[in-house]
Write a protein that binds this DNA or RNA. Structure first.
Lengths: 344, 344
DNA sequence: TTTAGCACTCTCGCCTCGAGAGTGCTAAAT
DNA sequence: ATTTAGCACTCTCGAGGCGAGAGTGCTAAA
């Protein structure tokens, strides 16, 4: 990796900035005019030539301006961009919206998707926090009709799960309540593994229930078991790079197909630390699906307790600074939410 | 509304069938060849001319084939198409998938969206059943930490709602349980209005809780308060009529923006009977947003108990027969689910 | 090392033109 | 009175040609 001179860095950064704004290849003369550079277009041309040889720029055709390559964007994001922060006023506005939503996870998720989409002018996605180490907190059994009953279960973090089921024979509400009370007393704070250990002390009905509880807790630990929130899908269609419908379709498929998404998230962000923001530029060679787009991803939450993922999908020509800081900030807010929900 | 001769009906139907298949304007000669008609292309031309004058067909330009107008599609759907049914085998496959999902509403909704999208090759949307006359069933109060507590509430139909809240001062789990028990005993089966009447007999804590319960029940009655499930968004991008990105964007906006959707559903399907399928072709003059698309909508559920909406969004050139029967069948299945959930 | 000058290249929009498809009319046939 | 063959006419669509404009890369001077 050869070192760039300061002037080369400057020019690369300016080309990228200009291209992100206009989506047009940028020419040497245009650059000096636009940014009042104190060296001439000929100099810029020379520098551009070496930047092209280094693989950071390319020309769509012989006599057009230069366009950043993916490698160019990566260099920009890693070395040139610096850490930008959202303006304080913006942060306040966002935080205010969130805190108005109380402790309603669903509203937070929707809001997060909406804020991300709006501030990055791209498509966003947010996964609900999924409990990594679910702990049993409370169980309720409610008779509804004949042998039908409703099981409602509260896990650590306020995760509520419900299930309807038919029993072998009718059971009164009193019996159900007693069973629930016994289980509640016995199982406080246990993990699924722990729960499996207490079944010995229970009778048939209670054993059946516990089995369901364990199943359900296990299910709550699936990465994408919970809901996936999306927003701003129409934004990506506004970008000129998605004027080709097939390109747009490929991009939307990433967000729509759970299996793709799952694979993607599993292989990138899941083995990453909380707090970091990961930037995927143009598929990085491995992801055919997002050859023409970039993603900015982050995890939020508390490792070992509950975590989730959020991110943005847009064209490679993306305002990375703005997007990265938005993603980072929202991830922080969602982490706060997780902490609050698990406070104990 | 002038009466069409049988031959005119035949030709209109064939033009539409052909156009739905190929998306190409259909010419007179092409039509006789394709369907082995026993009259000549000149005759077809004459009939097409009168169909054009009647407003059922039009020509994109002087010397192209004919294309159905929206009026033409409407006539086709109302008069010519007949009631088509899904093949029994298909029905079985679909039903089987659903019954494997147990009583899990979330899974049913996802499945419904997926089935609709798949069988109509278009975008689908399904709203979760929303309780029309919510009745109180069960309440649970769980202390979590300090003055924080979690309220879990079960409504008729197995609708579970949860909320986290901070109390003015710490309250023990015993006190909370007692309060919940009292409310449960007192409020069984009441509507929000009924609940407002019993507050006199309660102390401060219980009154506060009841107030939240009423709020939450009211919220559960919002038309679009629940989740909206979508699928097959990429399908619409495959259709040639959405090759123009702006057209595609307008279509996707309908599905993405809650406010648009809410307005749309409120003004069309909500005052319609269960079991009927409503077909909106090309905006019908009122809906600018869906000038270029059609929707097939239906309500499902039990009026007075819980209902929801489901439907499909696709190009005007849509296989209405297939789509309508799919929508009707899935609506029936979802209605069965609602009945099951409310069985009592 | 930087810059002015200049020839060269390539795209893009615009035009033209011919092929092809499909129509509408007229006159003959049934 | 319908239906049909025949034919002139219209319009789109794609291919090819052409000129303007933008931007480059090189060379030679500063």
């Amino acid at each position: 990796m050869p070192k760039l001179t300061e002037r080369q860095k400057l020019i690369l950064a300016l080309v990228i900035r200009s291209y992100i704004e206009t989506a047009q290849p940028v020419g040497s003369a245009h650059l000096v005019r636009r940014f009042n550079l104190d060296f001439s277009s000929a100099t810029v041309r020379n520098e551009m030539q070496t930047l092209t040889e280094l693989g950071y720029l390319r020309q769509p055709h012989t006599s057009a301006g230069r366009v950043p390559t993916e490698e160019g964007y990566r260099y920009f994001v890693r070395q040139l961009m610096g850490q930008s922060e959202l303006p304080v006023a913006t942060k306040h506005t966002i935080a205010h919206q969130f805190y108005q939503a109380g402790h309603d996870v669903d509203r937070w998720m929707r809001l997060a998707a909406s804020v991300l989409a709006h501030h990055s002018q791209a498509a966003s996605l947010v996964t609900a926090p999924h409990t990594e180490q679910a702990r049993f907190k409370h169980l309720e059994l409610i008779a509804t009709h004949g042998r039908q009953m409703l099981m409602v279960m509260v896990l650590s973090g306020g995760d509520v799960r419900q299930q309807m089921l038919s029993l072998a024979e009718p059971v009164s509400q009193e019996q159900l309540s007693a069973a629930a009370a016994k289980i509640n007393a016995l199982c406080q704070g246990l993990t699924p593994e722990g729960l499996a250990g207490v079944t010995a002390q229970l009778d048939v009905l209670e054993k059946d229930v516990i089995k369901l509880v364990i199943d359900d807790m296990r299910r709550s630990q699936d990465i994408l078991g919970g809901e996936v929130y999306r927003d701003g899908l129409t934004h990506v269609l506004s970008e000129p790079e998605f004027a080709e419908v097939d390109v747009a379709r490929k991009a939307l498929r990433i967000l729509e197909e759970r299996s793709l998404l799952e694979d993607l998230l599993a292989r990138t962000i899941m083995n990453d630390a909380i707090g970091g923001v990961q930037v995927l530029i143009g598929g990085e060679g491995t992801w055919e699906e997002l050859r023409d787009c970039s993603m900015v991803l982050a995890r939020y939450g508390v490792p070992g307790l509950a975590t989730g993922t959020l991110g943005v999908l847009g064209p490679i020509r993306m305002a990375y600074g703005q997007t990265i800081s938005t993603v980072r900030y929202v991830a922080g807010l969602l982490s706060d939410l997780v902490v609050d929900l698990h406070a104990e």
